[in-house]
Simulated scan of single mutants.
Amino acid sequence: MSITDQEEEPASAERPLRTPRARTVLMCRPEHFDVVYRINPWMNPGLPTDTSLAVRQWDELYRLYVGLGFDVRLIEPLAGLPDMVYAANGAFVIGNIAYGASFAYPERQPEAPAYRAWLRGEGFEVVAPRAVNEGEGDFLLVGETILAGTGFRSSSASHREVAEVYGREVLTLRLVDPSFYHLDTALAVLDDTPGREHIAYLPPAFDADSRALLAERYPDAILVDGDDAAVLGLNAFSDGYHVVIASRALDFARQLRDHGYEAMGVDLSELLLGGGGVKCCTLELRR
């Protein structure tokens, strides 16, 4: 559903026109979701986890994508891999080439071959990684450029590797706040169209050099406040017009409307207990 204020704001002629583009995405139903270990600050195995609620919330996101005309593919969830629901971490895909993941923590490492096998079965050319990386959690495509996160999970060596695989410019961004341990928790791609690149991000999540680089490259970016980032509001997915975000990220929704987007809120509060949100559940498959 759209996130709106109590009163409709008047239309503004200054708001840019946004064009949606249907996406193909991979998702994994959280049938085995649980928090049984701690590999990020969001996780606390001592708190109760409701797997059935996680599935119901995930189903809302799935239905929203289908309603937007997305081609949603599903990978079979495997018992013993509670974080497999965070499909974005399974690979990075551009032009039918899938750069596979190599997880930093042993608890998640068995996910990587499962995602590589699925991608091969769907006809993608799969590149096995040499360097530690966590897929689209730390690699985001904006126009022709790959933004690449490091500091907590993916290594800087994986940035060089992904540049070799795709032959594209790669900009390294260093994350410094452990609550935003993947790039896609601190930065959202709103429009990835070459020539119309637009992003949103949380400045304090990055070191000084990365903040300067982002400010220079994307001067019109939306700067999101800490309250919205704290509910993983930036862990969002956009088709260029509709931006699916955490339903509690209310000011971010307002900022999106001011920039000509339609903000669509979903409640993934149960999956937030594992440190993931909308984008974590969504791996884009770019043919």
Rank of each mutant, 00 (worst) to 15 (best):
P20L: 12
Y105T: 14
L68K: 09
D191W: 08
G135W: 00
T49P: 05
E7K: 06
G226M: 08
V127W: 01
P219L: 12
A112W: 07
D50M: 08
V176P: 07
L268H: 03
G137Y: 03
Y218L: 04
N44S: 10
A221P: 09
W118H: 06
F237W: 10
C281I: 02
V189R: 10
V266Q: 05
R73F: 09
T282S: 14
N40M: 12
S179T: 07
V126H: 05
A215Y: 12
P106Q: 10
T150S: 15
P129A: 03
T150Q: 09
H198Y: 09
R63P: 05
S2W: 06
L272N: 10
L47Y: 07
A91Q: 06
S154M: 11
S155R: 00
L147C: 01
C28F: 04
R196V: 11
V278W: 02
T193C: 06
A249R: 00
L26E: 09
G137D: 03
V165N: 06
R254C: 01
V132S: 04
D59G: 01
G80K: 13
T150P: 00
N89P: 06
Y181P: 09
P48S: 08
G277I: 01
A253Y: 13
S52A: 14
Y181F: 15
V243G: 00
R29E: 15
G265H: 14
P10Q: 03
L47Q: 13
Y166M: 03
L256M: 04
